[in-house]
Design a protein around this nucleic acid. Sequence first.
DNA 1: CTAAATGCAAATGCTTTGCAATTCC
DNA 2: GGAATTGCAAAGCATTTGCATTTAG
Lengths: 144, 144
Amino acid sequence: MVNDYEVEFRNYLKERALKFTPERQLILKTVFSLHKHFDIDQLWERLHKKDNRLSRATIYRTLPLLVDCNLIQETFRCQGRVQYEHIFGHQHHDHMVCIKCGKVIEFRNEEIERLQEEICKKYHFKPVEHRLGIRGYCQKCQSK
Amino acid sequence: MVNDYEVEFRNYLKERALKFTPERQLILKTVFSLHKHFDIDQLWERLHKKDNRLSRATIYRTLPLLVDCNLIQETFRCQGRVQYEHIFGHQHHDHMVCIKCGKVIEFRNEEIERLQEEICKKYHFKPVEHRLGIRGYCQKCQSK
DNA sequence: CTAAATGCAAATGCTTTGCAATTCC
DNA sequence: GGAATTGCAAAGCATTTGCATTTAG
């Protein structure tokens, strides 16, 4: 069974005369098996269990391809580390991140989305990507 | 003449039994003399002209204080470098950044601000800071 | 006087890169 | 077959840190 995201990636690579290697396949598959935000180190740990030869360098070289292909995206930073998430097949959403416990709440607000488009039009700005992040304290951490 | 921001910083330091040193004063003054976004290197260059002894380490140690004191804030990243801006005395605003030429457009939308508050309430999330960044192409770079 | 701050240089940690060997197409 | 990719180790670079010295309060 070939997943949609794999088709997507294969096409992306083919168009650019790049290769669909086992390493890239494994990285892709693993990225889509993670249903939370992840950073490069967490990803490497997962990958290392499956293939202990796969190097960090290959991850660093592959992720930008996946980003460019719109399969994943950078989200917020956590302790200086970029967090990624797969987005293919998912609707755009924004994040609230708890400063204390690190909890992440995802939300989507149509009105905000619409207003952003409106603003871009007003400034003749052609948006490619937007990111709204709210940092603060989640319910639990407030009461503590 | 003592600026408001200096009073603010002095109080902040005093409350914590920290010192208002000439280095901190110079950094503060310089940060508020820059009316654009800046990164640490740009700041260092400016500072170095005025006091060629002032070290990067001191800047790295001072900026977090200014952030904590709400005098400045991190904004978006540009080529991996965090961009700062002074915010004391300014209203919150968001950013559009041109991917091609780096142009930054600042904007503020009351409705978006309000909706964010609403969302936070809904999730019982206590916001401390929020950041909305739109990356894309400015008018000029689209036509090219 | 003394805890805090500074400059320096070394250390850290994430990311990138050169290169020889390998592999997809 | 040949360009692209990989792993490795080295290099890069921004940031942090230990320490001896200086200094604000």
